[in-house]
Design a protein around this nucleic acid. Structure first.
Lengths: 208, 208
DNA sequence: GACCTTCTCACCTACGTGTTAAGC
DNA sequence: TCGCTTAACACGTAGGTGAGAAGG
């Protein structure tokens, strides 16, 4: 999958000259990045929050594409949270067999990928290799999500275009380290609403 | 979509000479058919139970296909449930704009469709036309599910092969008529477990 | 009145959260 | 002890059931 990689404009195929992938929710990602984002990894896999979403333009509407998501290790350090700060530690672990997540709509027509935001809400991050389509990461290492767009033609030649997004970098953890990150997750992720209520209810009581 | 239709073996394309679609859960469908199966239709759409599932074989693993589900009106009568029996009544209503449900994995490779059971668990039946991918049926009319396999090639020529399954015939209803059907739905559909418990708990109490 | 449809409801399935305590 | 990981848990989201009353 990593064989051939080009970013941005290309020659030779007028139908894809302006191929572009734009990250959604940049403002939200920015809030997390400010405190160094963390993503939980579990044995059975944990979803990402914020959800990785992109809009794609410049594909050939009638051609067939598969859209992939993977994670590049940003540096070769193991990270550590000490006294409220993330600091780079020793050498990185050998890179995990970092598999690729295939967007469930794949394969599909260019028109399909362009008609609405492409959402990777179901990708799951894990620290164990366990079969089912999850992405294995090393805990306490830093990663950057990357999107690949693969044109599917019946011959073997595949052209892969990749886009990565520094705003979405994060450190994989088995438990949150920075409570600012925890607070942001609870504030914005609907599935964590139970903990949002727990903090808000006492205040509301005073007025009722 | 109804343009060209062939069932069973075909000449001319050796890669699909043995194309075959087999219905799953035949035994379960049989229990419902015995009492004349009913499927609820609602304004917002109701899932089918049993779920329509098939295994497909004989496709070209490397070719691309879309798999569709629709419903043919079995006869031209309106049906009525009188004294515990379904009886054919007056003329049928004008056939609803019976749309086609596209299996969400579509389009995909032959290999994908053949590697495991193809499940139509999310198709929803409705009696109103309301936009969102639901299938509109006339209440109190009899239908038979039908699968279409469409080979996707970049030219305009599409070959459609269709398979229908008499075991899965049903009458669309807005409320169940035959209590035997209700009992079977409750017994086998996990989402109706609340009503299964209601019938079993009294017996269990006697022993506790 | 008889028949059919619609709506609300309690009760499920299924599973995504951070918390917490225990494990190593 | 300390750092990190694991598993059970309460509490949400999201939505699929037939029942039963109300509507037409």
């Amino acid at each position: 999958v990593d064989s051939e990689m080009t970013v941005g404009s290309e020659k030779g195929d007028p139908t894809e000259r302006q191929l572009h992938v734009k990250l959604e929710d940049k403002e939200l990602w920015g809030k997390f990045k400010e405190f160094t984002n963390e993503m939980i990894v579990t044995k059975n896999g944990r979803r990402m929050f914020p959800v990785f979403r992109v809009t794609i333009s410049g594909l050939d509407p009638n051609a067939m594409y598969t859209v992939l998501l993977d994670f590049t290790q940003v540096d070769s350090h193991r990270w550590k949270y000490v006294n409220g700060d993330w600091v780079a530690g020793g050498k990185a672990e050998p890179a995990a067999p970092n598999c690729v997540y295939i967007h469930p709509d794949s394969p599909n027509f260019g028109a399909h990928w362009m008609k609405e935001t492409v959402t990777f809400s179901k990708v799951k991050l894990t620290n164990k290799l366990n079969g089912g389509g999850q992405i294995m990461l090393n805990s306490l290492h830093k990663y950057e999500p990357r999107v690949h767009i693969v044109k599917v033609n019946n011959s073997q030649k595949k052209r892969i275009t990749s886009f990565s997004f520094p705003e979405t970098q994060f450190i994989a953890v088995t438990a949150y380290q920075n409570e600012e990150i925890t607070a942001l997750k609870i504030k914005h992720n609907p599935f964590a609403k139970a903990f949002l209520d727990a903090k808000e209810r006492p205040d509301q009581k005073e007025f009722s």
